[in-house]
Simulated scan of single mutants.
Amino acid sequence: MMEIRGNKLLMLIGTAWLFDALDVALLSFIMPVIKQSWHLTAGELGAVSAVTSLGMMVGALICGYLADKWGRKPVLIGTLLLFSIGNLLLTVTPSVGWFIAVRFLTGIGLGGELPVAATIIADHFTGTKRARMLVLVDSFWAFGWIVASVLSFLVMPHFGWRVTVLITALMGLYALLVRRHLPDKTPTEPTNQRPFGAALRQVWSPQYRRATACLSVLWFVIMFAYYGMFLWLPSVLVLRGFSIVHGFGYTVLMSLAQLPGYYLAAWLIGKVQRKLVLAVYLAGTMLSAAAFGLATNATMILISGAWLSFFTLGAWGIMIAFTPGQFAVDARGMGMGFAQSIGRIGATIGPFLVGALMGLGVSITGIFMVFVAALVIGILVLLFGLRDQDRN
Protein backbone atom coordinates (compact mmCIF):
# COMPACT_ATOMS: atom_id res chain seq x y z
CA MET A 1 0.00 0.00 0.00
CA MET A 2 1.32 3.41 -0.97
CA GLU A 3 1.59 5.80 1.95
CA ILE A 4 1.83 9.55 1.71
CA ARG A 5 3.52 11.51 4.44
CA GLY A 6 4.26 15.07 5.42
CA ASN A 7 4.02 17.97 3.03
CA LYS A 8 2.60 16.02 0.09
CA LEU A 9 -0.38 14.81 2.11
CA LEU A 10 -0.78 18.29 3.57
CA MET A 11 -1.05 19.80 0.09
CA LEU A 12 -3.45 17.13 -1.21
CA ILE A 13 -5.83 17.35 1.74
CA GLY A 14 -5.46 21.13 2.18
CA THR A 15 -7.49 21.67 -1.00
CA ALA A 16 -10.59 20.64 0.98
CA TRP A 17 -10.29 23.70 3.20
CA LEU A 18 -9.27 25.91 0.31
CA PHE A 19 -12.41 25.08 -1.68
CA ASP A 20 -14.70 25.40 1.34
CA ALA A 21 -13.32 28.86 2.10
CA LEU A 22 -13.37 29.83 -1.56
CA ASP A 23 -17.05 28.91 -1.78
CA VAL A 24 -18.08 30.71 1.43
CA ALA A 25 -16.20 33.86 0.46
CA LEU A 26 -17.47 33.89 -3.11
CA LEU A 27 -21.05 33.53 -1.94
CA SER A 28 -20.69 36.64 0.23
CA PHE A 29 -19.51 38.56 -2.85
CA ILE A 30 -22.16 37.07 -5.18
CA MET A 31 -25.15 37.74 -2.92
CA PRO A 32 -25.27 41.54 -3.45
CA VAL A 33 -24.96 41.01 -7.22
CA ILE A 34 -27.86 38.55 -7.57
CA LYS A 35 -29.93 40.61 -5.13
CA GLN A 36 -29.77 43.49 -7.56
CA SER A 37 -30.03 41.56 -10.83
CA TRP A 38 -32.88 39.26 -9.71
CA HIS A 39 -34.54 41.87 -7.43
CA LEU A 40 -34.49 39.54 -4.45
CA THR A 41 -36.35 40.14 -1.23
CA ALA A 42 -34.62 39.93 2.13
CA GLY A 43 -36.23 36.53 2.68
CA GLU A 44 -34.99 35.15 -0.63
CA LEU A 45 -31.50 36.43 0.07
CA GLY A 46 -31.63 34.82 3.50
CA ALA A 47 -32.60 31.51 1.88
CA VAL A 48 -29.62 31.79 -0.49
CA SER A 49 -27.35 32.28 2.52
CA ALA A 50 -28.86 29.49 4.61
CA VAL A 51 -29.35 26.72 2.06
CA THR A 52 -25.63 26.07 1.66
CA SER A 53 -25.28 25.57 5.42
CA LEU A 54 -28.26 23.22 5.33
CA GLY A 55 -26.61 21.18 2.60
CA MET A 56 -23.33 21.18 4.51
CA MET A 57 -25.10 19.88 7.61
CA VAL A 58 -26.51 16.95 5.61
CA GLY A 59 -23.19 16.36 3.86
CA ALA A 60 -21.14 16.29 7.06
CA LEU A 61 -23.39 13.68 8.67
CA ILE A 62 -23.86 11.40 5.65
CA CYS A 63 -20.32 11.59 4.27
CA GLY A 64 -18.78 11.08 7.71
CA TYR A 65 -20.73 7.85 7.98
CA LEU A 66 -19.87 6.75 4.43
CA ALA A 67 -16.17 7.42 5.06
CA ASP A 68 -16.28 4.80 7.82
CA LYS A 69 -18.28 2.40 5.64
CA TRP A 70 -16.83 2.78 2.12
CA GLY A 71 -13.40 4.23 2.83
CA ARG A 72 -11.96 7.73 3.03
CA LYS A 73 -10.63 8.22 -0.51
CA PRO A 74 -13.76 7.48 -2.60
CA VAL A 75 -15.95 9.62 -0.36
CA LEU A 76 -13.49 12.53 -0.39
CA ILE A 77 -13.30 12.40 -4.20
CA GLY A 78 -17.09 12.19 -4.36
CA THR A 79 -17.54 15.33 -2.25
CA LEU A 80 -15.26 17.34 -4.55
CA LEU A 81 -17.09 15.97 -7.58
CA LEU A 82 -20.38 17.21 -6.11
CA PHE A 83 -18.81 20.62 -5.48
CA SER A 84 -17.54 20.86 -9.07
CA ILE A 85 -20.78 19.66 -10.68
CA GLY A 86 -22.77 22.01 -8.45
CA ASN A 87 -20.74 25.02 -9.51
CA LEU A 88 -20.96 24.04 -13.19
CA LEU A 89 -24.75 23.90 -12.84
CA LEU A 90 -24.77 27.18 -10.95
CA THR A 91 -23.37 29.00 -13.97
CA VAL A 92 -26.58 28.28 -15.93
CA THR A 93 -29.21 28.81 -13.21
CA PRO A 94 -31.97 31.03 -14.64
CA SER A 95 -33.66 32.03 -11.38
CA VAL A 96 -33.20 32.25 -7.62
CA GLY A 97 -35.21 29.03 -7.15
CA TRP A 98 -32.76 27.03 -9.26
CA PHE A 99 -29.86 28.86 -7.60
CA ILE A 100 -31.04 27.73 -4.16
CA ALA A 101 -31.55 24.12 -5.31
CA VAL A 102 -28.07 23.92 -6.82
CA ARG A 103 -26.51 25.56 -3.74
CA PHE A 104 -28.00 22.80 -1.59
CA LEU A 105 -26.30 20.18 -3.78
CA THR A 106 -23.01 22.08 -3.61
CA GLY A 107 -23.37 22.36 0.16
CA ILE A 108 -23.61 18.57 0.53
CA GLY A 109 -20.24 18.24 -1.19
CA LEU A 110 -18.62 21.01 0.80
CA GLY A 111 -20.00 19.87 4.15
CA GLY A 112 -18.96 16.29 3.57
CA GLU A 113 -15.46 17.20 2.46
CA LEU A 114 -14.04 18.68 5.67
CA PRO A 115 -14.80 15.89 8.20
CA VAL A 116 -13.59 13.23 5.75
CA ALA A 117 -10.43 15.19 4.95
CA ALA A 118 -9.69 15.69 8.65
CA THR A 119 -10.27 11.97 9.24
CA ILE A 120 -7.66 11.07 6.61
CA ILE A 121 -5.06 13.22 8.39
CA ALA A 122 -6.06 11.74 11.76
CA ASP A 123 -5.68 8.21 10.39
CA HIS A 124 -2.16 8.88 9.09
CA PHE A 125 -0.65 10.47 12.22
CA THR A 126 -0.87 10.20 15.98
CA GLY A 127 -0.26 12.41 19.00
CA THR A 128 1.28 15.86 18.62
CA LYS A 129 2.14 15.26 14.95
CA ARG A 130 -1.52 14.57 14.18
CA ALA A 131 -2.69 17.72 15.98
CA ARG A 132 -0.14 19.95 14.26
CA MET A 133 -0.89 18.55 10.82
CA LEU A 134 -4.60 19.13 11.35
CA VAL A 135 -4.05 22.76 12.35
CA LEU A 136 -1.74 23.33 9.38
CA VAL A 137 -4.16 21.76 6.90
CA ASP A 138 -6.90 23.99 8.28
CA SER A 139 -4.72 27.03 7.50
CA PHE A 140 -5.58 26.50 3.82
CA TRP A 141 -8.87 28.20 4.68
CA ALA A 142 -7.01 31.53 4.62
CA PHE A 143 -5.65 30.84 1.14
CA GLY A 144 -9.18 30.06 -0.03
CA TRP A 145 -10.33 33.50 1.12
CA ILE A 146 -7.39 35.14 -0.63
CA VAL A 147 -8.16 33.33 -3.91
CA ALA A 148 -11.83 34.32 -3.59
CA SER A 149 -10.83 37.94 -2.99
CA VAL A 150 -8.67 37.98 -6.12
CA LEU A 151 -11.42 36.43 -8.25
CA SER A 152 -14.08 38.74 -6.84
CA PHE A 153 -12.16 41.94 -7.38
CA LEU A 154 -10.35 41.11 -10.63
CA VAL A 155 -12.69 38.74 -12.50
CA MET A 156 -16.25 39.34 -11.30
CA PRO A 157 -16.50 43.08 -12.15
CA HIS A 158 -15.44 42.43 -15.76
CA PHE A 159 -16.91 39.00 -16.58
CA GLY A 160 -19.71 38.54 -14.05
CA TRP A 161 -20.37 36.09 -11.25
CA ARG A 162 -21.12 33.15 -13.58
CA VAL A 163 -17.65 33.17 -15.13
CA THR A 164 -16.13 33.51 -11.66
CA VAL A 165 -18.03 30.43 -10.46
CA LEU A 166 -17.01 28.57 -13.63
CA ILE A 167 -13.36 29.16 -12.77
CA THR A 168 -13.89 27.63 -9.30
CA ALA A 169 -15.59 24.60 -10.88
CA LEU A 170 -12.64 24.07 -13.22
CA MET A 171 -10.27 24.39 -10.26
CA GLY A 172 -12.27 21.67 -8.52
CA LEU A 173 -12.03 19.36 -11.53
CA TYR A 174 -8.25 19.85 -11.56
CA ALA A 175 -8.08 19.00 -7.86
CA LEU A 176 -9.98 15.79 -8.63
CA LEU A 177 -7.11 14.71 -10.88
CA VAL A 178 -4.59 15.55 -8.18
CA ARG A 179 -6.47 13.51 -5.56
CA ARG A 180 -5.94 10.36 -7.56
CA HIS A 181 -2.56 10.26 -5.81
CA LEU A 182 -4.16 9.74 -2.41
CA PRO A 183 -3.65 6.24 -0.98
CA ASP A 184 -6.52 3.82 -1.55
CA LYS A 185 -6.51 3.02 2.16
CA THR A 186 -5.21 4.92 5.16
CA PRO A 187 -2.96 3.01 7.58
CA THR A 188 -5.69 2.47 10.20
CA GLU A 189 -8.77 2.67 8.00
CA PRO A 190 -11.71 0.62 9.30
CA THR A 191 -14.02 -1.66 7.38
CA ASN A 192 -17.15 -0.62 9.25
CA GLN A 193 -20.29 -2.11 7.70
CA ARG A 194 -22.77 -1.01 10.38
CA PRO A 195 -25.98 0.61 9.13
CA PHE A 196 -26.39 4.36 9.66
CA GLY A 197 -28.55 4.03 12.76
CA ALA A 198 -26.06 1.72 14.47
CA ALA A 199 -23.16 4.05 13.64
CA LEU A 200 -25.09 7.00 15.06
CA ARG A 201 -25.87 5.06 18.24
CA GLN A 202 -22.18 4.25 18.60
CA VAL A 203 -21.10 7.90 18.86
CA TRP A 204 -23.84 8.37 21.48
CA SER A 205 -22.85 5.25 23.41
CA PRO A 206 -21.47 5.70 26.95
CA GLN A 207 -17.95 5.50 25.51
CA TYR A 208 -18.37 8.64 23.40
CA ARG A 209 -21.53 10.37 24.70
CA ARG A 210 -19.76 13.07 26.68
CA ALA A 211 -17.30 13.88 23.92
CA THR A 212 -20.01 13.92 21.24
CA ALA A 213 -22.24 16.26 23.24
CA CYS A 214 -19.46 18.68 24.19
CA LEU A 215 -17.88 18.73 20.73
CA SER A 216 -21.28 19.36 19.16
CA VAL A 217 -21.84 22.37 21.44
CA LEU A 218 -18.36 23.73 20.71
CA TRP A 219 -18.74 23.34 16.94
CA PHE A 220 -22.14 25.03 17.15
CA VAL A 221 -20.66 27.98 19.07
CA ILE A 222 -17.65 28.41 16.77
CA MET A 223 -19.65 28.22 13.53
CA PHE A 224 -22.46 30.37 14.97
CA ALA A 225 -19.95 33.08 15.86
CA TYR A 226 -17.83 32.81 12.70
CA TYR A 227 -20.63 32.87 10.14
CA GLY A 228 -22.67 35.42 12.06
CA MET A 229 -19.80 37.87 12.44
CA PHE A 230 -17.88 37.43 9.21
CA LEU A 231 -20.72 37.13 6.69
CA TRP A 232 -22.99 39.94 7.88
CA LEU A 233 -21.37 42.53 10.08
CA PRO A 234 -18.92 43.96 7.53
CA SER A 235 -21.99 44.98 5.52
CA VAL A 236 -23.51 46.53 8.62
CA LEU A 237 -20.38 48.57 9.22
CA VAL A 238 -20.48 49.81 5.63
CA LEU A 239 -23.94 51.20 6.36
CA ARG A 240 -22.42 53.07 9.30
CA GLY A 241 -19.96 54.75 6.96
CA PHE A 242 -16.90 52.50 7.22
CA SER A 243 -16.57 51.66 3.52
CA ILE A 244 -13.09 50.24 4.11
CA VAL A 245 -14.55 46.89 5.17
CA HIS A 246 -15.61 46.07 1.60
CA GLY A 247 -12.28 46.97 0.04
CA PHE A 248 -9.87 44.50 -1.44
CA GLY A 249 -7.19 45.47 1.08
CA TYR A 250 -9.47 44.83 4.04
CA THR A 251 -10.51 41.41 2.77
CA VAL A 252 -6.92 40.33 2.18
CA LEU A 253 -5.85 41.71 5.56
CA MET A 254 -8.55 39.69 7.33
CA SER A 255 -7.38 36.60 5.44
CA LEU A 256 -3.69 37.15 6.13
CA ALA A 257 -4.39 37.71 9.84
CA GLN A 258 -5.64 34.12 10.01
CA LEU A 259 -2.28 32.63 9.06
CA PRO A 260 -0.26 33.62 12.17
CA GLY A 261 -3.22 32.45 14.25
CA TYR A 262 -3.00 29.00 12.69
CA TYR A 263 0.79 28.79 12.79
CA LEU A 264 1.05 29.90 16.43
CA ALA A 265 -1.56 27.32 17.38
CA ALA A 266 0.36 24.60 15.52
CA TRP A 267 3.53 25.60 17.39
CA LEU A 268 1.82 25.71 20.80
CA ILE A 269 0.25 22.27 20.40
CA GLY A 270 2.64 19.81 21.99
CA LYS A 271 4.22 22.47 24.16
CA VAL A 272 1.00 23.37 25.97
CA GLN A 273 -2.08 21.24 26.65
CA ARG A 274 -4.42 21.47 23.65
CA LYS A 275 -7.40 22.14 25.87
CA LEU A 276 -5.66 25.18 27.34
CA VAL A 277 -4.59 26.47 23.91
CA LEU A 278 -8.18 26.21 22.66
CA ALA A 279 -9.50 27.99 25.76
CA VAL A 280 -7.05 30.87 25.20
CA TYR A 281 -8.07 31.17 21.54
CA LEU A 282 -11.77 31.14 22.41
CA ALA A 283 -11.18 33.82 25.04
CA GLY A 284 -9.24 35.85 22.47
CA THR A 285 -12.16 35.49 20.06
CA MET A 286 -14.56 36.67 22.75
CA LEU A 287 -12.49 39.78 23.61
CA SER A 288 -11.89 40.61 19.95
CA ALA A 289 -15.61 40.30 19.21
CA ALA A 290 -16.39 42.74 21.99
CA ALA A 291 -13.77 45.20 20.70
CA PHE A 292 -15.00 44.82 17.10
CA GLY A 293 -18.58 45.50 18.17
CA LEU A 294 -17.49 48.64 20.04
CA ALA A 295 -15.30 49.93 17.18
CA THR A 296 -16.08 53.53 16.23
CA ASN A 297 -13.44 54.31 13.60
CA ALA A 298 -11.58 52.64 10.75
CA THR A 299 -8.40 52.05 12.77
CA MET A 300 -10.28 50.22 15.53
CA ILE A 301 -12.13 48.18 12.91
CA LEU A 302 -8.89 47.08 11.26
CA ILE A 303 -7.07 46.23 14.50
CA SER A 304 -9.94 44.46 16.26
CA GLY A 305 -10.96 42.78 12.99
CA ALA A 306 -7.46 41.41 12.47
CA TRP A 307 -7.37 40.03 16.01
CA LEU A 308 -10.86 38.58 15.56
CA SER A 309 -9.71 36.82 12.40
CA PHE A 310 -6.51 35.64 14.15
CA PHE A 311 -8.31 34.05 17.11
CA THR A 312 -11.53 32.81 15.48
CA LEU A 313 -9.87 30.85 12.70
CA GLY A 314 -7.09 29.68 15.02
CA ALA A 315 -9.76 28.29 17.36
CA TRP A 316 -11.38 26.55 14.39
CA GLY A 317 -8.04 24.97 13.51
CA ILE A 318 -7.52 23.72 17.05
CA MET A 319 -11.03 22.24 17.03
CA ILE A 320 -10.15 20.39 13.82
CA ALA A 321 -7.12 19.00 15.66
CA PHE A 322 -9.05 18.27 18.84
CA THR A 323 -12.11 16.46 17.45
CA PRO A 324 -10.85 13.31 15.61
CA GLY A 325 -8.75 12.14 18.54
CA GLN A 326 -11.86 11.91 20.73
CA PHE A 327 -13.04 8.91 18.69
CA ALA A 328 -11.48 5.56 17.85
CA VAL A 329 -10.82 4.88 14.18
CA ASP A 330 -14.03 2.90 13.56
CA ALA A 331 -16.19 5.79 14.80
CA ARG A 332 -14.00 8.71 13.70
CA GLY A 333 -15.74 9.64 10.46
CA MET A 334 -19.21 9.52 12.00
CA GLY A 335 -18.11 11.33 15.16
CA MET A 336 -16.41 14.11 13.24
CA GLY A 337 -19.29 14.38 10.79
CA PHE A 338 -21.99 14.47 13.47
CA ALA A 339 -20.28 17.18 15.54
CA GLN A 340 -19.70 19.34 12.46
CA SER A 341 -23.27 18.81 11.25
CA ILE A 342 -24.51 20.30 14.54
CA GLY A 343 -22.05 23.13 13.98
CA ARG A 344 -23.68 23.80 10.61
CA ILE A 345 -26.94 24.48 12.43
CA GLY A 346 -25.08 27.27 14.20
CA ALA A 347 -23.73 28.45 10.84
CA THR A 348 -27.33 28.72 9.61
CA ILE A 349 -28.75 30.41 12.72
CA GLY A 350 -25.93 32.95 13.15
CA PRO A 351 -26.49 35.01 9.97
CA PHE A 352 -30.29 34.80 10.32
CA LEU A 353 -30.12 35.97 13.93
CA VAL A 354 -28.00 38.97 13.00
CA GLY A 355 -30.54 40.03 10.39
CA ALA A 356 -33.43 39.52 12.81
CA LEU A 357 -31.75 41.55 15.56
CA MET A 358 -30.94 44.31 13.10
CA GLY A 359 -34.59 44.37 12.09
CA LEU A 360 -35.57 44.78 15.74
CA GLY A 361 -33.25 47.76 16.04
CA VAL A 362 -30.61 46.08 18.21
CA SER A 363 -27.28 47.92 18.03
CA ILE A 364 -24.14 46.41 16.54
CA THR A 365 -22.64 46.36 20.03
CA GLY A 366 -25.66 44.46 21.31
CA ILE A 367 -25.44 41.95 18.47
CA PHE A 368 -21.77 41.27 19.19
CA MET A 369 -22.57 40.75 22.86
CA VAL A 370 -24.75 37.80 21.77
CA PHE A 371 -21.67 36.22 20.21
CA VAL A 372 -19.63 37.03 23.33
CA ALA A 373 -22.21 35.22 25.47
CA ALA A 374 -22.16 32.19 23.16
CA LEU A 375 -18.36 32.05 23.35
CA VAL A 376 -18.51 32.15 27.16
CA ILE A 377 -20.74 29.05 27.03
CA GLY A 378 -18.28 27.38 24.69
CA ILE A 379 -15.34 28.06 27.02
CA LEU A 380 -17.23 26.59 30.00
CA VAL A 381 -18.18 23.46 28.03
CA LEU A 382 -14.55 23.02 26.97
CA LEU A 383 -13.07 23.47 30.43
CA PHE A 384 -15.55 21.34 32.37
CA GLY A 385 -16.86 18.90 29.77
CA LEU A 386 -14.03 17.70 27.51
CA ARG A 387 -10.98 15.60 28.24
CA ASP A 388 -7.73 16.20 26.36
CA GLN A 389 -7.28 12.72 24.90
CA ASP A 390 -6.05 11.23 21.66
CA ARG A 391 -7.38 7.82 20.60
CA ASN A 392 -5.52 5.90 17.90
Rank of each mutant, 00 (worst) to 15 (best):
L173E: 02
G249Q: 13
V354Q: 10
L294I: 11
K129A: 14
N192W: 03
G335Q: 06
T93E: 00
V116T: 15
F292D: 04
R72Y: 10
I34N: 07
V178W: 14
L218Q: 00
A279W: 10
F153K: 07
L313N: 14
P32M: 01
G346T: 05
A306W: 07
A339F: 02
A47S: 15
G335N: 03
F29C: 01
G144Y: 02
L282Q: 13
A169N: 12
G160T: 06
G43T: 05
L200K: 11
V150Y: 14
L151Q: 08
M254L: 10
P190F: 10
N392C: 00
A42M: 02
F83Q: 09
K185S: 13
G107E: 10
R194P: 01
L170T: 09
T348R: 01
V75L: 08
A298V: 14
V354I: 09
K185M: 04
A175T: 12
A117F: 08
S304F: 12
Q326I: 08
F292G: 01
T93Y: 02
A265Y: 13
Y281C: 09
T251P: 00
S235N: 14
V236Q: 10
I62Y: 15
L360G: 07
D68E: 11
H124P: 01
M369G: 04
L302K: 00
K129M: 07
L61W: 06
D388C: 09
H246L: 05
L302T: 07
V236G: 00
L81A: 15
G71P: 07
G172C: 05
V217W: 01
A257K: 02
A331K: 12
A122R: 08
I320C: 06
F310P: 07
T164G: 10
T106M: 08
R72S: 09
L276G: 04
M171V: 03
G317P: 08
L82A: 12
L278S: 03
T93K: 03
V381I: 04
L253G: 12
T41G: 13
K275A: 02
F311W: 13
S235H: 12
L287T: 15
V58D: 03
V48Y: 04
I364P: 00
G55P: 06
A25H: 05
T126W: 14
